[in-house]
């Protein structure tokens, strides 16, 4: 059984976390001490047999930690909590191990992780994670926490960026909003690269709407960052032409390939 001071610290953390507005400093210090306690009790990465209540408590601490690190915008720390929680979510639900009751925070956290992968444009990881969710594939859309990232990914992939823009306010949990900014950054870069390829020039105003900028100065600094030529008098942006670059014939490669071919033929004949 867990020592009493651990239990009381856990209770304090729960209070501090659910209080409105929550007390970030107190949460941080409590989390730090609780994590030490967890590792001393061998619950940080659970090995062997621990009692059910202890494990539920440990899981709660980690979950609160995950949410807390998002609130304090500490993404690497969120990643750490997520991978620690993996054991609790994936391994402790079938017979040889202790069966934990499902946590109400499990899917919000999984959903958050999915969004985090999206914002980094790690689409392959996104799909791998999605595939390993313990849900039937056609019920993915029934879970609001999972449905949100799934829809976002679909819109991103097919290019319906305006839908992504509109959906940013419809997040199923408060924490999802923390990712909106970085997500917007991602899609702006996506749109920008599309525009470079698809347009020769664009009126400033339209470019602003396409990129979801509300003020012209934001647009101008973004244009400068990407190296676009802005013509302020005509009010247009001209994109640097690509695609006309000269195609070089890779002589050495061709020669090497032909020589290898000749050698192989020699071997056969």
């Amino acid at each position: 059984m867990a020592p009493t001071q651990f239990v009381s610290a856990y209770k304090q953390l729960q209070q501090a976390f659910s209080a409105r507005p929550s007390d970030p400093k107190k949460c941080a210090s409590l989390l730090a001490s609780l994590k030490i306690a967890l590792s001393e009790l061998g619950l940080l990465v659970p090995m062997g047999e621990a009692s059910l209540e202890d494990m539920v408590m440990a899981r709660d601490v980690l979950e609160i930690g995950a949410f807390f690190s998002i609130r304090s915008r500490d993404i690497p720390s969120f990643d750490r909590y997520y991978s620690q929680l993996q054991t609790y979510y994936n391994d402790y639900k079938c017979v040889p191990y202790t069966v934990l009751p499902p946590s109400p925070r499990e899917y919000p956290i999984r959903g958050l992780y999915l969004i985090r992968l999206l914002t980094q444009n790690r689409i392959a990881d996104f799909h791998t994670t999605l595939e390993s969710l313990p849900l039937a594939a056609d019920s993915l859309t029934a879970n609001p926490y999972i449905q949100h990232p799934v829809n976002l990914e679909r819109w991103l992939m097919e290019g319906s960026y305006s839908k992504v823009w509109k959906a940013r306010e419809e997040a199923p949990a408060e924490e999802y909003r923390f990712f909106v900014d970085s997500l917007m950054e991602t899609i702006r870069n996506e749109i920008a690269s599309c525009e470079e390829a698809a347009y020769e020039s664009l009126p400033l105003k339209d470019a602003g709407t396409l990129l979801f900028f509300t003020s012209q100065s934001e647009l101008l600094s973004f244009a400068k960052q990407r190296g676009w030529q802005v013509n302020l008098t005509a009010g247009t942006i001209t994109f640097a032409k690509k695609g006309e670059e000269k195609i070089e014939i890779p002589k050495e490669k061709l020669i090497a390939a032909n020589l290898a071919l000749a050698r192989e033929l020699e071997q056969i004949v």
């Binding site: 290019g159 319906s160 305006s162 839908k163 690269s193 599309c194 390829a197 698809a198 347009y199």
Partner: peptide, 12 residues
């Protein structure tokens, strides 16, 4: 609006 983005992405 969607169509414009989608076509843009297809070109890219």
């Amino acid at each position: 609006e969607d169509a414009e983005y989608i076509v843009g992405k297809a070109i890219r």
